[in-house]
Design a binder for these strands. Structure first.
Length: 862
RNA sequence: GCCCGGGUGGCGGAAUUGGUAGACGCGUCGGACUCAAAAUCCGAUGGCAGCGAUGUCGUAGGGGUUCGAGUCCCCUCCCGGGUACCA
């Protein structure tokens, strides 16, 4: 019998594509190129989840479409395979992370192939492969040579639980991004990359990128450029100056006290004898606080007077110098001039400690707040009085510069990138220490491979696991023959993913990270798809490295990723939950806090919508109706393997694209998968009938005008929608075609062929199968994409809705040749019975006629 | 708090520059086929009133611009993401 059997069709075509290397990247450069990139996955032990195929299907559709449009397409995949889970598993079981990683990669590869993605499998990269990380190390050497990588003893985010330091970007709310463990500050020798040297370029070049505005904005905020001034305040009775950074130099006449960060280098020197004890105690306490504690205690300001005074250079008044932890040591100069009148934090502090407040900007009469941060004329500010912020700033900076007490200045929130980790499973640094100084390993000795160790834990003294490989550590400097020690830190996981998109271009090239000629052809990446969780971290780091490589002449573009799209998260199936307390079901609105609450899952049939909310059927008890993030603990994880087994890869692909806009967060629905699966079944029956025998239901007849119209409407819509990445509505157009075509006796070949091509990027297996059965010998992967013709889209009649006072009262059909004839259309419109009814007893005061669109008769009574 | 997104049927979501709100899919209801079920097919399906023609309300809420607003403007509420003493 004629039945659509994905389990039989799909593996067969997957094998065909692999064996024939159908998707091998063309090596010639004689066509336009399209580089379409997925964020490569970390091959975790739990395999692919349904989130992966979402972005991967979207890019696969585009890759297949672009090939049919005549582009040379580069569509690769690889493995971001260094990382913590494999290492933690190694610590627990002693299994070498390499073993775990290899195993996981095999699983991931199988899963991706099972979904029919058209990757060029000859270009796979693996960040843990020494042939790959050789070039990661090579790039690090470039950074080192350029003075962009340096060692520094600095307070770092130390995570005791993970046994490693973390970059600022990896710390969220004082906890580690991975695992959520507490993070404390602790000084340590670390490798740091000078990303701040590129702050301005990283900021400016965002403008030319086709990225989501929100992502660009996040990067802008993270870089945090602010323009202001640095001003020197003379310390009274000391030969010292305190330099502050401020964005509001115009408010200097309102600077009524100063605050230093507790760690500021002048604190000890200027503190008076009477205040010494208090200051010491405060500094002690601040040092002991973790970042988390510092944040938790932000509600109330704390601080201590140093006993010292500074002279405000604008008015020569002596003002108190305090220390307080609301001033951060690592931003600006670690010291501020406090202007409570125009700064909410300073106001709060001034109120707390009874310090003077002077307004220097006139608030509006009805202003009732405390600090006034908006614009207005300057007051109490001598020669600035009357000027608004912009002019006042300019004038005061001129004055500061003339008097040698300050100058214009720019500051960034962005800090240098902490680049070393105390881990085993990462790239070793190509660095040796000779006479206590770091020195580059010569390029000819790359890669510096990971040594074998017997234990993957940090040593008892807190040194990284590599410190266990004594023979590896002790080496000689090839240049001088002196004794040398290898660096025992390793690089963070971001290192490998900072440049992998370049390696795909020439994965076997051994003259550098990337072959220049190929790079020139393929770069930049035309479309990059991946999760928004990488908005700052990966995407900022990769841009930084790319710019460094640009400066060394390795790459020819300033930016790596021209267009970026984030796929939205797929949530679990919608769940209905009632809350039970003390054995009684209570309304979800009253259910706050966890005490004594029991969650009772309900079936969809037990609930109904009442107004804005869902309630238990027939009651007033409100229940929760929500989709949650998929998680093992919640037990709502959908495994792609199961979906493929039951419905096939084409159905999974189609469903994930049909759910809604790619960028949007959306809940999973197994019923929805069944829906698209039905569509594929209907498509199969359209071509092969539903009789006992499989019989090709395709005729050699010339299609009718109507059949052509149906086809060409589909071509237009599907083409536009793929171009605009609106895959959900594109699929809807394919469904409309099949629904229409199912009413025909048979499908004319001239319609059948193009339709199968339209379907193929979305559901490649079934499309190849039908294509083959239509008598084509070769894969359809490089067939020409169908073109639509306006000729067939024209209709013989044009429909006009007819409104009276903006309300539709009738629909009329006008022959196409009369459609733009206003008099004709209006005449016909007014004849309509229901229109006449509404015109009765009124006077037409205006006739709106929008050709091809609408008729609106504006009337008034009488 | 601040900065971005976003609120459309029972559900996921459609709707060119302002021009018939609810495409497509799910669900539900009715029918056909069947001994029966599944699968499939046909029909209906925003609410309210009406046998019906039709009327009326309706895109989070309130106001405005317009012949006409889901779409533009102002205010409020709710949800999601980011960020948090960055001077």
């Amino acid at each position: 019998m004629s039945i659509y059997k994905p389990s039989e069709i799909e593996p067969r075509w997957q094998k065909y594509w692999l064996e024939k290397k159908t998707f091998k990247t063309p090596e010639n450069h004689d066509r336009p190129k399209y580089y379409i990139l997925d964020m490569f996955p970390y091959p975790s032990g739990s395999g692919l989840h349904v989130g992966h195929p979402e972005g991967y299907t979207a890019t696969d559709i585009l890759a297949r479409y672009k090939r049919m449009m005549g582009y040379n397409v580069l569509h690769p995949i690889g493995w971001d395979a260094f990382g913590l889970p494999a290492e933690q598993y190694a610590v627990k079981t002693g299994t070498h992370p390499r073993i775990t990683t290899e195993k996981n990669i095999i699983r991931f590869r199988e899963q991706l192939q099972m979904l029919g993605f058209s990757y060029d499998w000859d270009r796979e990269v693996d960040t843990t492969d020494p042939n790959y990380y050789k070039w990661t190390q090579w790039i690090f050497l470039k950074l080192f040579e350029m003075g962009l990588a340096y060692e520094d003893e600095q307070p770092v985010n130390w995570c005791p639980e993970l046994g490693t330091v973390l970059a600022n970007e990896e710390v969220i709310d004082g906890k580690s991004e991975v695992g959520g463990y507490p993070v404390v500050r602790r000084p340590m020798r670390q490798w740091v990359l000078k990303i701040t040297a590129y702050a301005d370029r990283l900021l400016e070049d965002l403008d030319g990128l086709e990225w989501p505005e929100s992502t660009k904005e996040m990067q802008r905020n993270w870089i945090g450029k602010s323009i202001g001034a640095e001003i020197d305040f003379q310390v009274h009775q000391h030969d010292e100056k305190i330099r502050v950074f401020t964005t509001r130099p115009d408010t200097i006449f309102g600077a009524t006290y100063m605050v230093l960060a507790p760690e500021h280098h002048l604190v000890e020197q200027i503190t008076t004898a009477e205040q010494k004890a208090a200051v010491e105690a405060y500094r002690e306490k601040a040092a002991q606080k973790s970042d988390l504690e510092r944040q938790e205690l932000t509600k109330e300001k704390t601080g201590v007077f140093t006993g010292a005074y500074a002279i405000n250079p604008a008015n020569n008044k002596a003002i108190q110098i305090w220390i307080a932890d609301y001033v951060l040591a690592h931003y600006g100069t670690g010291a501020i001039m406090a202007v409570p009148g125009e700064d909410e934090r300073d106001w709060e502090f001034a109120e707390m400690f009874d310090l003077p407040i002077v307004r220097t900007v006139q608030p509006p009469d009805d202003f009732e707040g405390k600090a006034y941060t908006e614009d207005g004329p300057s007051i109490n500010s001598d020669f600035l009085n009357g000027l608004h912020i912009t002019e006042a700033k300019q004038k005061i900076i001129e004055w500061l510069e003339k008097n040698g007490v300050g100058s214009k200045s720019v500051n960034y929130k962005l800090r240098d990138w902490l680049f070393s980790r105390q881990r085993y499973w990462g790239e070793p640094f190509p660095i040796i220490h000779v006479d206590g100084k770091p020195k580059a390993v010569p390029e000819s000795e790359l890669p510096v491979t990971l040594p074998e160790v017997d234990d993957f834990q940090p040593t008892k003294t807190g040194e990284p696991p590599l410190a266990r490989a004594a023979e590896w550590i002790e080496t000689t400097d090839p240049e001088t023959g002196k004794k040398a020690l290898r660096e025992t830190n390793t690089m963070p996981q971001w290192a490998g993913s900072c440049w992998y998109y370049l390696r795909y271009i020439s994965p076997d090239f051994d003259g550098g990270p990337v072959d220049k000629g190929e790079e020139k052809y393929w770069m930049p990446v035309d479309l990059y798809v991946g999760g928004s969780e990488h908005s700052v971290l990966h995407l900022l780091y990769a841009r930084f490295w790319h710019k460094v490589l640009y400066d060394c002449g390795v790459v020819s573009t300033k930016e790596p990723f021209q267009k970026l799209v984030h796929q939205g998260m797929i949530l679990g199936e919608v769940e209905y939950t009632a809350y039970e307390k003390d054995g009684k079901i209570i309304s979800a609105e009253q259910a706050d806090g966890d005490e004594g609450l029991k969650r009772v899952p309900l079936a969809e049939s037990d609930v109904e919508k009442k107004g804005e909310r869902f309630v238990m059927k027939g009651t007033e008890i409100v229940v929760d109706a929500r989709a949650h993030k998929m998680s093992k603990s919640r037990g709502n994880v959908i495994n792609p393997d199961d979906v493929v087994k039951k419905y096939g890869a084409d159905s999974l692909r189609l469903y994930e694209m049909f759910m809604g806009p790619l960028e949007q967060v959306k809940p999973w629905s197994t019923k929805g998968v069944e829906g698209v699966n039905r569509f594929l079944n209907r498509t199969w029956r359209l071509f092969f009938g539903d009789g006992e025998e499989e019989r090709l239901n395709v005729s050699e007849d010339e299609p009718t005008r109507d059949q052509f119209r149906v086809l060409h409407e589909a071509i237009k819509k599907v083409t536009d929608d793929i171009d605009g990445m609106r895959f959900n509505t594109g699929i809807s157009a394919l469904m409309i075609f099949v629904n229409e075509a199912n009413q025909w006796k048979s499908v004319p070949r001239a319609v059948a062929d193009p339709f199968v091509l339209l379907l193929s990027p979305f559901a490649p297996h079934i499309a190849e199968e039908i294509w083959n059965k239509l008598g084509h010998k070769e894969s359809l992967a490089y067939e020409e994409w169908p073109q639509y013709s306006e000729e067939y889209l024209k209709s013989d009649i044009v429909e006009y809705p007819v409104q009276v006072n903006g309300k539709v009262r009738a629909n009329i059909e006008v022959p196409a040749d009369q459609a733009k004839n206003k008099d004709f259309v209006l005449g016909l419109a007014k004849q309509q019975k229901n229109v006449q009814k509404h015109l009765d007893g009124t006077t037409i005061i205006k006739e709106i006629f929008v050709p091809g669109r609408i008729v609106n008769l504006v009337v008034k009574p009488g």
